[in-house]
């Protein structure tokens, strides 16, 4: 191996961003000590939705596959974990099984979807997501139909039970950390560079010998798996799973989180997700339950005003 030239690093963590990450981690870990229980619950929801949005960003931002039906995998994970908990499995193993179920579904759906591109990809993911919701509605024996799965027992880790606000928060925070580490490890690795290369210039990457379809399928399955993992956390947090968890509105919310955060940056997706949950939980109370109206207007405004999201605001568009 010869001397490596400067400027080759993929995941150079600067001192400043490292310190920032550490500060955020400490703030998150200490949260239940300084936040009111209600705020802690909101933060728990933000973490679940943030992980879900970050998994979508792997698709939208990293490899450039805009999915309109990503909630399907959140929902499949949530239903799997909820069903397992109702049948006695409340340990973290349920999270892994939830991720596996979603990965499997993602393999099937991705195998179909990545053969297309552009608008066709949008349509296919949307259609598959909607069909998943319809299945959740009509397959009553397993999913509980439109009532969903309710009375899901609290998650357990060994002798500990995530039943009160603080313990549930730590359970979700732990899961969030694992899921984000997974996504970050891909994004920061040479594999992540290859995914970005396919996003920017598929022709060139194919000429370099990258079977782009295979990478796209990999990204699709991984994003589905992490979404399913987030779904498992969702089931533990809500103790209830309904068809709307895998519906179009949830997909749209996640996409919105990615877009207003600024696609291509995992932390930005989390920030966008936190913002949306904040708006929904705090402002949703005041708009008479017509949160989606506000959301729709925000969507329209964001498309025109912030083409690069929050992360794109500091730098000027070229």
């Amino acid at each position: 191996m010869s001397a490596v030239p400067a400027g080759l690093g993929y995941a150079r963590v600067s001192l400043r961003s490292g310190a920032l990450a550490a500060a955020i981690a400490v703030t998150l870990v200490a949260a239940p000590f300084y936040l009111a229980p209600y705020a802690t619950t909101t933060l728990t929801r933000m973490l679940v939705f943030g992980l879900f949005a970050a998994s979508l960003d792997l698709l939208v931002g990293l490899i450039g596959l805009p999915s309109l039906g990503h909630a399907a995998y959140l929902g499949i994970g949530a239903y799997t974990a909820g069903w397992l908990a109702l049948h006695g499995l409340t340990s973290p193993l349920a999270l892994l099984l939830a991720a596996s179920a979603s990965a499997l579904a993602g393999l099937g759906a991705g195998w179909i979807s990545v053969r297309s591109s552009g608008i066709f990809f949008l349509i296919l993911t949307l259609a598959i997501g909607e069909i998943a919701e319809q299945i959740a509605q009509s397959w009553t024996a397993v999913t509980g139909g439109s009532n969903g799965l309710y009375g899901i027992p609290a998650a357990t880790v060994g002798p500990l039970t995530a039943s009160d606000v603080a313990s549930l928060y730590y359970y979700v925070l732990g899961g969030f950390g694992v899921g984000m580490a997974m996504l970050w490890s891909v994004s920061a690795s040479p594999l992540g560079a290859a995914l970005r290369g396919i996003r920017d210039n598929k022709t060139r990457m194919r000429a370099l010998g990258y079977e782009s379809t295979r990478y796209e399928l990999f990204a699709f399955v991984l994003a589905a798996a992490v979404a399913g993992f987030a779904g498992g956390l969702l089931a533990a947090q809500q103790r209830l799973v309904t068809p709307s968890d895998l519906g179009f509105t949830t997909s749209a919310l996640a996409l919105f989180a990615v877009v207003i955060g600024g696609s291509g940056r995992l932390w930005a997706a989390c920030l966008g997700a936190a913002l949306i949950i904040g708006v929904r939980d705090v402002a949703g109370l005041t708009v008479n339950g017509h949160g989606p109206l506000l959301l729709g207007l925000l969507f329209i405004a964001a498309v025109y005003l912030m083409p690069h999201g929050i992360a794109g605001l500091p730098r000027r568009r070229k």
Partner: peptide
Amino acid sequence: RPHLDQALLTLGIALVIAEVLSA
């Protein structure tokens, strides 16, 4: 702009229509 942006715009419009009708 990318297809996604146009789709997001019509999605926003769709959400607004649905909510106005439900109101």
